[in-house]
Design a protein around this nucleic acid. Structure first.
Length: 574
DNA sequence: ATTAGGG
DNA sequence: CCCTAAT
């Protein structure tokens, strides 16, 4: 039964009972208030995973802008590799005048990766071409200068089945059923970089991922779950978690989602004195004057976040590899753009030449550049009320000259709750396996029936977490004060009309947690603190409306009795 | 489609 | 947040 306590504790001043106020649904068993999402402060120990975004395609086709000096096979996806960017000295077609780093540099590389994923990843039946375990070590010690570390933060957990009873099918049959891949970076940890869709996307042929129609199908409890989940639903879980963990996972068929990949990747690089070409641009006009001097950059490695792998002993090595592969390939898939910082300043103008930007072989003090991978789809924005949010711009970037700083900034960032990330050496981080080429064994539904729905299931994902701001809470409280609880649709219309990402269910849920928050001690609260004043109003309103509902219930009850009693008497008389 | 509540 | 039951 509903407790009357609150009624006694709070006054009703200022509240008006709308004529249409509804009585609470029959007294459902009311459990203790929802437990605040309690995510441990999972640590995010990044592991150095040498990523081979290799692919000839990626690193330059004919012109081969970059060369992978690790001798990586093209079909390798992950492995510590070193990529060296070199500008041909006397090649045919000097790769266009190199005017901008982003367009013809890493950016294209990374994006190209997605385009060739099919070829590069699934085509690698000869997975052995990619050696595992080479990461962590400098492949080419001799090469000094530019080193770039791609550092991805998402804390991913790969869980392959688990329970002892689960029997993992022999590898090679593609029946990877018991797989879980989820992110430990659940809930709280995404807070800083939520990126609600700002601009409406053009009509899409497929329901957007945020669509409840799709999400509905998905299980929920597994998001936070760990290895304990296994068995039959594992396949689905895998995909769920997978999607969750990697919002950037390629969604070629389903358009992008507003979710941004909150975790950025970083690139550390060092400028290297380049070789001067024999004015290959000669005669092409003054425009290219600055292009005859080349800058060499070398991507030493890509850092990938730690991958936790939990897998039953009975699972096959192949299945394990596959999982890691999936995770990594997703990371590298797409949805990112490259950011560039020169001497601490972000370079936004893609049309500037390197020289104009200060990236010059003659610039001695410019010994480092900062690259970052950022969500490319949208301008991040914290709230609808903060249209000008430029979270992206604030993404911490790594600086080649100061690893400590790098780690520190990461450490300090709310984005990275981990307290140990980055402190590990590359070698330490390398404990995670490096998958071999992706064969045709990617996890599949036990039986494919309705391709369509299944496709949707695969791409559907949990909505990103979007903590309510104080302003939003304020609006919510005000609306509830006015409208009461139980009229969430009205609340939505009244106070969150323009906040597409706030459904009335969200508001209802938020109110629920607000009430809970208000009842617990400040020490137990988490997240952005809500002003006590607001919480007081929450309790007040909650108490008031609860009381109203109670009264309404009683009145209806008495009415019922008045109607029922006579009938009962009449029945007795018969 | 909404609402209430449990997970 | 998600999901379901009940409206």
């Amino acid at each position: 039964m509903v407790s009357h306590k609150c009624v006694d504790e709070f006054g009703y001043k200022g509240y008006l009972l709308p004529a249409n106020a509804r009585a609470p649904r029959s007294a459902r068993k009311r459990r203790s208030f929802e437990k605040e999402i309690s995510e441990d402060d999972h640590q995010m120990c990044a592991i150095d995973l040498l990523a081979t975004v290799a692919e000839n395609v990626l690193f330059g086709n004919e012109s081969s802008l970059m060369s992978i000096d690790n001798g990586i096979e093209s079909n390798c996806v992950v492995s510590r590799i070193s990529v060296k960017e070199e500008f041909p000295v006397e090649e045919e077609e000097p790769v266009k005048p190199v005017t901008s780093m982003s367009p013809c540099g890493f950016s294209s590389v990374i994006n190209a990766k997605a385009e060739n994923e099919a070829d590069g990843f699934s085509n690698s039946g000869a997975g052995d071409s990619c050696q595992v375990g080479s990461f962590g070590e400098d492949v080419k010690p001799g090469v000094d200068g530019g080193e770039v570390v791609l550092d991805a933060r998402p804390d991913v957990v790969v869980s392959l089945g688990s329970s002892s009873r689960t029997k993992v099918p022999p590898m090679g049959n593609g029946a990877m059923d018991d797989v879980n891949l989820f992110s430990r970076d659940d809930d709280e940890n995404f807070s800083g970089y939520i990126c609600p869709r700002v601009t409406k996307k053009p009509p899409r042929s497929v329901p957007r991922i945020g669509d409840r129609r799709i999400r509905k199908i998905l299980a929920s409890r597994h998001w936070k779950g760990g290895s304990r989940h296994s068995d039959a639903k594992s396949w689905r879980n895998y995909h769920l978690h997978h999607q969750r963990s990697y919002p950037i996972k390629k969604r070629r068929h389903f358009d992008h989602i507003s979710d941004s990949f909150s975790d950025d990747y970083r690139l550390r690089t060092k400028m290297q004195r380049g070789s001067r070409t024999i004015s290959s641009m000669k005669g092409q006009g003054a425009t290219f004057v600055s292009s005859d001097s080349h800058v060499r950059l070398r991507i030493k490695s890509f850092r990938v976040p730690e991958l936790f792998v939990e897998i039953p002993e009975t699972a096959t090595v192949g299945s394990l590899k596959r999982m890691v592969m999936e995770a990594v390939s997703s990371l590298l898939s797409d949805g990112h753009r490259v950011g560039l910082m020169v001497q601490g300043k972000k370079v936004r103008d893609d049309n500037k030449t390197l020289h104009q930007t200060g990236i010059s072989q003659d610039n001695d003090h410019l010994d480092s550049l900062d690259f970052s991978l950022e969500p490319s789809s949208e301008k991040p924005q914290l709230l609808s009320s903060n249209p000008a949010g430029h979270v992206c711009e604030e993404l911490p970037m790594c600086h080649a000259s100061d690893m400590v700083t790098v780690f520190k900034s990461e450490h300090d960032s709310a984005l990275y709750p981990s307290d140990s990330f980055g402190m590990k050496t590359a070698t330490d981080d390398s404990k995670v396996l490096v998958p071999v080429g992706l064969t045709d064994l990617s996890p599949r539904p036990p039986c494919r029936k309705s391709k369509r729905s299944e496709q949707q299931q695969q791409t559907a994902q949990r909505r990103m977490r979007r903590p309510f701001s104080v302003a939003e809470v304020e609006a919510l409280v005000q609306a509830v004060e006015k409208l009461g609880t139980g009229r969430w649709r009205d609340v939505k219309l009244r106070a969150f009309e323009d906040a597409d990402h706030r459904t009335y269910v969200d508001l209802k849920d938020k109110w629920k947690t607000l009430v809970h928050t208000a009842k617990i001690s400040p020490q137990q609260r988490r997240g952005e603190p809500v002003p006590q004043e607001l919480l007081n109003r929450v309790l007040n309103a909650h108490g008031y409306w609860l009381q109203q509902h109670m009264q309404l219930l009683e009145s209806t009850n008495s009415k019922l009795q008045q109607e029922t009693l006579p009938q009962a008497e009449a029945l007795l008389l018969l």
